[in-house]
Amino acid sequence: MKQSYKQFVIRDWQKSDRSSAAEVIRRVLEEYGLPWQPEEADRDVIEVETAYFGTGGEFWVVETEGKIVGTAAYYPVKRDSKEVEIRKMYLLPQVRGQGLGKYLLQKLEKAIANKGFKVIYLETASVLKEAVILYEKNCYQPMTEVATARCDRSYYKKLNRLNSS
């Protein structure tokens, strides 16, 4: 996958992206006072091949001027019922406010629907106010269960045929 949005290139993660993508996520988490947990919640960023590609998911990076400035990913959580979790959707501060988050979310939803998945889950933290607003504006419904310690919000969205067109 490779596509453009304004001055950004969104493409599939490659092995050479491992440290740069992890650094983007670490920086955004620390900006909001959240811990970077490479042995726990962020282990999937270190082990992209296993966590995403090995399970039927995808991991994308966002570049501008040859530098990675964002990430977005998903992987299946329950194969029988066609459910996925959106993960690692992070943008550096200098690229926020340009519609990139909304664009990424729409592209993730389309990719997920095109693979036949029916339900999307995600977790976030209240301090990530922009993310909470984005998900709620895009019809994600709150849930009570949260599996990740640093997160205090979870959402789901059921996909329908309209999402896959």
Rank of each mutant, 00 (worst) to 15 (best):
L108W: 09
G99C: 15
G54N: 06
K137L: 14
I10P: 14
E40H: 12
Y155F: 15
M143H: 08
P93G: 01
D80H: 01
A131H: 01
V61A: 14
A73C: 13
V48G: 06
T144M: 13
G97H: 01
L122P: 12
V77I: 05
R161F: 14
R26C: 07
G101V: 10
N160C: 13
E63M: 04
K88T: 14
T50Q: 15
V24S: 06
E85P: 00
Y52H: 09
Y74H: 09
Y140R: 07
L34G: 11
K82L: 11
E63F: 14
D80W: 03
Q98Y: 00
G99M: 10
I68F: 02
E39S: 04
A41M: 10
A73M: 11
A51K: 01
I86V: 12
K157I: 14
Q141H: 15
A72Y: 06
E23R: 14
E136H: 03
E23G: 08
V9M: 13
V45R: 08
M89I: 07
V95M: 00
Y74E: 06
R27G: 04
R43E: 15
W60A: 15
T148K: 09
R87E: 13
I86T: 02
L134A: 02
Q7V: 09
I68Y: 03
R153W: 06
R43S: 14
N138T: 14
G70E: 01
R43W: 10
Y103V: 00
E39I: 04
K78N: 05
D44C: 11
E39D: 13
Y103C: 00
M1Q: 12
E130P: 01
T55A: 13
F8R: 05
Q14C: 12
E85Q: 03
I10D: 13
S19P: 02
L91Q: 06
Y156W: 11
V127K: 07
G57D: 08
Q7A: 09
G101M: 06
V45Q: 12
M89C: 06
E145F: 02
V95S: 00
V28K: 03
P142Y: 07
S4M: 13
D17I: 09
I120E: 07
I46P: 05
D17W: 04
V48M: 12
S165N: 11
N138K: 11
E123T: 03
S16D: 11
V127E: 04
P38N: 09
D44H: 04
K158W: 00
T64C: 05
L122R: 03
V24R: 02
I10G: 08
D17G: 04
Q7L: 09
V119D: 14
Q3Y: 07
Q7P: 01
G101T: 08
D17N: 03
S154I: 02
E39M: 04
E49V: 08
G70D: 07
S81K: 03
N163G: 03
L91K: 02
G101E: 10
N114Y: 00
N160R: 05
C139M: 15
E65C: 04
